[in-house]
Amino acid sequence: METKTYKKRQNLFKTDGWKRFKKNKLALIGAVVILVMVLAAVFAPVIVRNDPYVSLKEGSTVLKDLTPAESGTILGTDNLGRDEFSRLIYAARVSMSVGLVAVGISTVIGVLLGAISGYFGGVADIIIMRCVDVVNCFPVLFLIIIIATILKPSIYNVMIIIGLCNWTGTARLVRGEILRVREMEYVQAAVSLGANDFRIIFSHVIPNVMAPIIVEATMQMARAILTEASLSYLGCGVQLPTASWGNMLMEANNLATLTKRPWQWVPAGACIFLAVLSINFIGDGLRDAFDAKQKK
C-alpha cells in the first residue's frame, strides 16, 4: 500500500494533466494564495503579536476603534480594542477547517450514495435520486439556517451541517460517471473474474472517476467557505468571541463602522473573497487539466 501511493504521487508531477495545470496562470496564483492562507492559519500563534481575544489597553483605557497608525498594529483595533490583524489570521483557521471538513463529509456521502445509486440501479437508484430532488428543492442556506438555529451553533455543528446539506451535486456526478464506466471492458473483466461489488466499485470504478470528484470537491470547498461566512454573518454560524471572517463583518455591519472604520470590515470581506476566488480558480484549472471530458 505504501509503495503504491508513493508511485502514484511521483507520477502525478509527470502527467500531462499536471503540465496543463502549471500553464494555467490563474490556477497557479490561486494555489499560491491558498497556500499562504493555509500556512497563516497553521502558524497563526507564531505570526500574530497580540492575542486575538484580549483587548489592548494603555493603562486603564481600552484602545478601541483605533486606526492602524494610532494603535501601532497592522490593521488597527476593533470595537472592543482587539487586534484586527490577529483576529483575521485566527479566522483563517476557522474558514479553512470548516471548508475542509464540510467538503470531506459531503464528498464521502455523495460518493457512497452516488455509487450505490449508479451501480445497483433499480429501487435504490429511484429512492436516492428522489432524495436528491427533495434536498435540491430547499435553498441550501434555508436548510442550513434552520438546522443551525435548532442545534447549538458551534464551529463543529457548522461543519457537519454544511457537509450534510451539500452532497447532492457529488451524488449526481458519481452516479452519472458510474453509469458510464459500468459498461466498460475493464469493469466487465473484473466482473467475469468474480470480483465482488464492493471491490469493483472501490478499486475499479471510483479511481477512474476520481478527476471529476476532485474538481467538484474543490468547487464545493469554495461554496462551503462562502456558506460558513454567510451563516456567521447572519449570526447562526461560528459564535463570538471566536473570530470568523463572516462574524467580523457582522460586527461591523452598522452605518457608523461602514463609513468611519473601513479597517474593521474591508480586510475580512477581502479575505473571504480572495479565498473563494482562489479556490474557484484552482477548481477550474484542475477541471481543464485532469477532466478531459469537460474541457471546452
Binding site: 454567510s230 463583518l249 461602514l258 470581506g269 477581502a270 473571504i272 473573497f273 473563494v276 480558480f281 477550474d284
Partner: peptide, 18 residues
C-alpha cells in the same frame, strides 16, 4: 464571472452601500 460567483453578497452589498 469568477468574481461574480466568489464575492460574498454581504460584502458586495456593504461595499455598494459605502
Amino acid at each position: 464571472s469568477f468574481i461574480g460567483i466568489s464575492v460574498p453578497s454581504f460584502f458586495f452589498g456593504m461595499g455598494l452601500i459605502y
